[in-house]
């Protein structure tokens, strides 16, 4: 890796009750690149993603041991405030979940939480973020209508804009296109390619072709372990591990 790591995972183990879902994970996620986690369902790739912004905190019976360093700071350190960590990351989930607010309200929610009160400033912020996700032209005339009136594809881009509005450094995507039609998927993928100039992007995906299209690096996760990690082309064309080979050839999914 030529880049300095943005997220560095060290000896991370995660347990759901007595079941161990992540086993001794060590990985460095490079700065301002797209890194994709691939692997079969239930392999732990989403669990791993969620450790990055401590979303397991509120879940029951989940125990995390090990370190996750973001900008060199261990986010599982007792002194670290969780909202401060989460503010650094925007999360996109499998299906878009707009807040029960207007389109404007969704984008302005984060900045308002963090103390932006000035109305003209908020207006400008909302416009900037909606333009960043190429949604502005589609919604500028109905900013104050409920966000649920948008199509699923638009909602997912809105959720991305909402995440960007808190000025994160990292975008986490948990299969963010799995509920979208091909056209919207294409738009979101293009966005990722543009956004990686400014943000570190970590994606969970089960679509190999998507991983190939958008990512610089691929991590293959299987049974709670990282099997292989490398630059996209290298890992897909010349996998070193037998398991990776079998997965890419489609022997299991």
């Amino acid at each position: 890796m030529t880049n300095t790591p943005h997220i560095s995972v060290q000896n991370l183990n995660l347990y759901y009750g007595t079941r161990q879902a992540l086993k001794n994970i060590n990985i460095n996620i490079p700065d301002k690149k797209v890194t994709s986690f691939i692997g079969p369902s239930g392999c732990g790739k989403t669990s791993l993603l969620k450790t990055f912004n401590r979303l397991h905190d509120s879940a029951l019976d989940v125990r995390v041991a090990g370190k996750v360093l973001v900008d060199g700071e261990n986010i599982y350190d007792k002194q670290v405030e969780v909202t401060h960590i989460r503010k650094k990351m925007g999360l996109l989930s499998q299906r878009p979940f707009p807040l029960p607010l207007s389109i404007y309200g969704n984008v302005a929610y984060g900045p308002k939480l963090h103390g932006v009160k000035d109305k003209p400033l908020l207006d400008a912020l909302v416009e900037q973020r909606l333009k960043e996700v190429a949604l502005w032209d589609e919604v500028k005339d109905r900013l104050h209508t409920p966000a649920t009136g948008l199509s699923i594809g638009q909602q997912q881009r809105l959720c991305l804009a909402r995440g960007l509005a808190v000025e994160p450094e990292i975008i986490l995507g948990d299969e963010p296109t799995s509920a979208l039609d091909p056209k919207s998927t294409h738009k979101v993928e293009e966005l990722f390619l543009e956004l990686k100039n400014k943000y570190t992007i970590v994606l969970v995906t089960h679509i190999l072709r998507q991983a190939r299209r958008v990512s610089d690096y691929i991590v293959f996760v299987y049974d709670g372990q990282i099997i292989e990690f490398g630059p996209t082309e290298e890992l897909l064309l010349n996998p070193k591990e037998e398991l990776t080979k079998d997965y890419i050839r489609g022997f299991f999914s």
Partner: peptide
């Protein structure tokens, strides 16, 4: 209320109280 909704609020940096208010709206 879907868990993802509170996750969304949390990941924007909302505290529990702020998340609770979102759930009330929902």
């Amino acid at each position: 209320c879907p868990k993802e909704l509170s996750d969304a609020a949390y990941s924007l940096g909302a505290t529990r109280w702020e998340t609770a208010k979102v759930l009330v709206l929902q």
